[in-house]
Write a protein that binds this DNA or RNA. Sequence first.
DNA 1: CGACCAATATATAGAAAGTATATATAACCC
DNA 2: GGGTTATATATACTTTCTATATATTGGTCG
Lengths: 182, 182
Amino acid sequence: MAIKYSILGLLHYKDMHGYRIKEHVERNFGHMWSINYGQIYPNLKKLCEDGLISMREMPQNGEKGPPRKLYSITEKGREEFVRWLHDSPERTMIMRDPFLMRFVFFGFGDREKALALIDEQIRDYEKQLKRRDENKKRWTELGLYVRLVADLGISFNEMYIDWLKRAREEIARPNVKEPETS
Amino acid sequence: MAIKYSILGLLHYKDMHGYRIKEHVERNFGHMWSINYGQIYPNLKKLCEDGLISMREMPQNGEKGPPRKLYSITEKGREEFVRWLHDSPERTMIMRDPFLMRFVFFGFGDREKALALIDEQIRDYEKQLKRRDENKKRWTELGLYVRLVADLGISFNEMYIDWLKRAREEIARPNVKEPETS
DNA sequence: CGACCAATATATAGAAAGTATATATAACCC
DNA sequence: GGGTTATATATACTTTCTATATATTGGTCG
């Protein structure tokens, strides 16, 4: 139920409608977080039913598109949010990576193909690191906590690229052993 | 569809039934990966229907529990697996962390409570790092690729603890600014 | 002016991943 | 022979994620 509370948290900053929430997340947290309509609209509906946010339909004044539904956090919502904020996080970090999932099995495939996939990863993450470095100033403007998470993103990127390069080197050495069967 | 292929990969090592797969993953990959029966049994069923693995029921010879269904990878399964292995991973890494999700919003709550949660995280990850260091020898026996992923786990742990400590220090300093409203 | 396109906005279906729990069998032990 | 424990399979449910359907309006170009 983390997404529910994240949306509640965003409405702390200002009143928003669903479309604006997605835009906001992409603009401000795009490199570390993504959200989509399939998560936003059902959650807004649920939050509204629970009385944690309130909705008012906006009059059409010259803007494009269908009438907007503007959501605001309620007093009850603020209380519930702070309660959640100070709670110990339920479970630990989940890291799911289609590349690493393959990586453990590379022993069953072709080594050259594996090296090529690693090179592809190195290129991708170097691009990402460059983007993150460029965006650091913008994140700093969003306050201490957002900037710290951005720093974490950069540290992670650097660490991961280092690891990829070390791994590549080891794999490329001629005397690789096959994984044992158990 | 990563889990489907991971199970296929595990059956590369040896024939297994569902219960054994869970045991194997917990024993050998417990600190970096977890799987559960709700993922295992439906996937085994699906893989069987697609002809990527085959099933045979085992006779009861002195063991506990109901009759086992032993699964083996088929030739078709091996081909499909290698095809997947050499494919470029579809999407990039997903990192979801209930703690970090809260962290970005810490500006809206109590600073002392935030510091306490950070301390809790530091303790947890230091414990995890200790366990990972202790287990490194065992992972090394499972072959180059598994060991490299274990190394990544250790590097990640160290980096994350460093970041938590740096962040704690900055937050504890008296002159913290509130996040800006936008 | 009206057909068409692009942008805005909401909504829902459905797949994939993860959690929880139900059910069954047999060994082991008192 | 009844309760406990370990083994094993199965399914229901929740959460997260992806994809797509639908509606409205402004702009534009012939």
